[in-house]
Design a protein around this nucleic acid. Structure first.
Lengths: 120, 120
DNA sequence: ATTACATTTGAATAGTTGTTCAACTATTTA
DNA sequence: TAAATAGTTGAACAACTATTCAAATGTAAT
């Protein structure tokens, strides 16, 4: 018995092995896809995409974002932490204020492509 | 008393009104951002992004996808429903089989941009 | 030092989401 | 018509996530 054989979880008998092999070869490597999913997960939240979109116009302090989105400072700060951890934003401190800005030109491209898509 | 006045949820006194106004003017409209967030939410799942990536190589039946991702038919079918509802995939039936394929060239562009991003 | 204020953080909670399991369609074949 | 098979669907459960609240930082002004 060949223990390296994949045990298919589906009960299908008919699979198109050539098509499957083609897909397997052409797909990006596992790690890349996982990272991409993580990236999209960050974009896939209404608050965060509003923050990113706002920062596209220029840097803002946490208070500005809070006022702009009409959300509590705490909620905004929590989301900013996630954006920081994903390296999508950077920040600089000036006195008591913290100014955030976009960290990566990819962000703007991805945003632009998405808004283009949703506008058909 | 002006009831149209926004009640800021943050306790900040210092906001940069000009920066806020600039952001407000330049941001896409609310509906667009929400739709974009919904789109990214769909991309932001490991299973779904694997499916989309696999379909980039060509159409596959549900059983193929199930075998390729080593997941149950049911789990795959549930995710395919979400992809269908988002108009990201289309399908054609042939006998008992259902073949899925990508529905939109934007999908491929967004995927490509994301993989480019995660590879620094 | 003390106060004031912008921001962060941790815990708690409510809501969302992905997978599984079992039952159900729909199509083909015998 | 009956059996077999590819796929779908709904309910249930576990895992995750966004917001709130309260408390804690850190910086500037008094």
């Amino acid at each position: 018995m060949n223990h390296t054989e994949r045990l298919p979880l589906c009960s299908c008998e008919i699979t198109h092995q050539d098509a499957i092999e083609k897909a397997r070869k052409e797909m990006p490597q596992e790690k890349t896809l996982c990272k991409a999913a993580e990236l999209f997960k960050v974009f896939g939240d209404n608050t965060r995409i509003h923050i990113l979109s706002a920062l596209h116009a220029g840097e803002l302090c946490v208070c500005d974002i809070s006022a702009l989105l009409n959300m509590t400072l705490s909620a905004v700060s929590h989301q900013l932490r996630i954006l920081r951890q994903s390296n999508l934003v950077r920040y600089r401190k000036k006195g008591k204020e913290v100014f955030y800005s976009l960290n990566d030109s990819h962000v703007e491209q991805i945003l632009a492509l998405a808004t283009e898509h949703v506008n058909e």
